[in-house]
C-alpha cells in the first residue's frame, strides 16, 4: 500500500459518500445517471468475485464490501425509492449502456491475464469501469447545468483514478516485477475521459461561477 493508492481509495470512497449524501439529503437523483450507477454495480460485483476466496487484508475486504453495498444501494434507491425515483431524468439518461457492457466483455475475452473465469471478469470490470462514466457525462452535457454535489461527485471520481495512475507509476518504479498493463492503460483512458470535465470544473471554480458544460 502506498500513499497514492490510499488517497485514491479514499477519494473513491468520498465520491460515493457525496453521492449518497446528495440522494439522502435532497431525496433527489436529478442530474445523476442511473445507467452509470448500474454499470458501477456491475463493475464491483464482477471485480470482487474473489471476495470470499482471496483474503488480502481487512482493509481490502472491508472496502470491497462497502463498494458493492453502496453501489447496489444507490441503484436500488434510484429504481425503487418512491421519492428518489420520481426525480430521475429518464428522458435525459438515454445512453445505450448495454453496448458498453457487451464491448467490455468482448474485449475481456480477447485481452486478459489468464483465461480463467475470475481473470476474465476482472479484466471485464477494469474495461467497464473505464467507460462507465460515459452515460453520466452525456447526461450532464444534455442537462447543461451541474449542481454542486454532482460536480463534486464527478470530480472525486476522476481524482481517484488519477491517484491510481500515480500509484502505478510509483509501484512500477519501486517493485521489480510490477507490470499491470490492463489496469494501467484502461485507467489512463478512464482519467482522460474526465479531462474535459475537469477543465470546465476548474474554469468554473476559478471564476467562481456555476459549472456550465457546453451543450
Amino acid at each position: 500500500m502506498n500513499i497514492f493508492r490510499l488517497a485514491g481509495d479514499m477519494t473513491h470512497l468520498l465520491s460515493i459518500l457525496v453521492l449518497l449524501l446528495k440522494i439522502y439529503a435532497t431525496k433527489s437523483c436529478s442530474g445523476i445517471s442511473r445507467k452509470t450507477q448500474e454499470l458501477y454495480a456491475i463493475v464491483f460485483v464482477a471485480r470482487y468475485l474473489d471476495l470470499f476466496t482471496d483474503f488480502i487484508s481487512v482493509y481490502n475486504t472491508f472496502m470491497k464490501v462497502v463498494f458493492i453495498a453502496s453501489s447496489l444501494a444507490i441503484v436500488w434507491c434510484m429504481r425503487f425509492h418512491p421519492m428518489v425515483r420520481r426525480s430521475y431524468d429518464r428522458e435525459l439518461d438515454t445512453f445505450r449502456h448495454y453496448f458498453l457492457v457487451g464491448a467490455s466483455f468482448a474485449l475481456a475475452l480477447i485481452l486478459h491475464e489468464k483465461f480463467t473465469v475470475q481473470e476474465i471478469f476482472w479484466a471485464f470490470s477494469i474495461y467497464l469501469e473505464a467507460v462507465a462514466i460515459l452515460p453520466q457525462l452525456v447526461l450532464l452535457q444534455r442537462s447543461g447545468n451541474v449542481d454542486n454535489l454532482t460536480g463534486q461527485y464527478i470530480f472525486f471520481l476522476g481524482a481517484y483514478r488519477a491517484f491510481y495512475i500515480l500509484n502505478w507509476i510509483y509501484r512500477y518504479l519501486t517493485e521489480p516485477h510490477f507490470t499491470r498493463w490492463i489496469a494501467c492503460v484502461s485507467g489512463v483512458v478512464q482519467t482522460a475521459l474526465y479531462a474535459d470535465f475537469f477543465y470546465y470544473y476548474f474554469i468554473s471554480w476559478k471564476n467562481n461561477s456555476k459549472l456550465k458544460l457546453p451543450a
Partner: peptide, 10 residues
Amino acid sequence: LEEILYHDEL
C-alpha cells in the same frame, strides 16, 4: 504468492 498479490488493488 505472486497469484494472490496480483489483485491486491481495489
